[in-house]
Computed example of a mutant assay.
Amino acid sequence: MNQFYYDAVTKMESMGVDDEYILGWQAGFLHHPEREEQRITEAYEAGYADGGEKNLDNLDKWVKS
């Protein structure tokens, strides 16, 4: 597995990032098709976009409080 991917997911989990964002990020990173429309959340959609760009800049916005 790609070391960047592993490190990114580990970082998100340790930071307490929203699970929906993580799932979206993983799907976007791996170029999986998006979920069907009724199952897409704001966090998933943001994660999908960031994962597709291999972007970790927005993680703080999705840390669960």
Rank of each mutant, 00 (worst) to 15 (best):
M1F: 11
M1P: 07
M1S: 08
N2F: 01
N2L: 00
Q3M: 14
F4L: 13
F4E: 08
F4A: 04
Y5N: 12
Y5D: 14
Y5C: 08
Y5Q: 14
Y6C: 14
Y6K: 05
Y6I: 11
Y6E: 06
Y6N: 05
A8S: 12
A8F: 03
A8I: 02
A8Y: 04
V9N: 13
V9Y: 11
T10N: 09
K11R: 05
K11F: 11
M12N: 09
M12W: 03
M12F: 04
E13C: 05
E13V: 06
E13Y: 01
S14C: 15
S14K: 08
S14Q: 06
S14Y: 01
S14T: 13
G16K: 02
G16N: 03
V17W: 00
D18S: 10
D19H: 00
E20I: 00
E20K: 05
E20C: 11
I22A: 04
I22Y: 00
L23T: 00
L23A: 13
L23R: 04
L23F: 09
L23W: 01
G24W: 00
W25H: 12
W25P: 13
W25Y: 03
W25C: 13
Q26A: 12
Q26V: 09
A27S: 15
A27D: 09
G28L: 02
F29W: 02
L30K: 06
H31V: 00
H31R: 11
H32L: 07
H32R: 09
H32A: 12
P33I: 03
P33F: 02
P33T: 14
E34L: 13
E34N: 12
E34M: 07
R35P: 05
R35W: 03
E37V: 14
E37I: 15
E37K: 08
Q38I: 15
Q38A: 14
R39H: 07
I40S: 14
I40D: 04
I40W: 05
E42N: 14
E42A: 09
A43Y: 02
A43R: 02
A43Q: 07
Y44L: 06
Y44T: 04
Y44R: 15
A46Q: 05
G47F: 00
G47Y: 02
A49E: 15
A49C: 11
A49D: 12
D50C: 09
G51R: 01
G51Y: 01
G52S: 06
G52I: 00
E53W: 04
K54M: 14
D57S: 08
N58P: 10
N58R: 15
L59K: 12
L59I: 14
L59C: 10
L59D: 04
L59V: 10
L59G: 01
D60I: 03
K61I: 02
K61L: 13
K61M: 09
K61F: 06
K61A: 12
K61Q: 09
W62R: 06
V63H: 08
V63I: 09
K64T: 10
K64M: 06
K64C: 15
S65L: 09
S65G: 08
S65M: 01
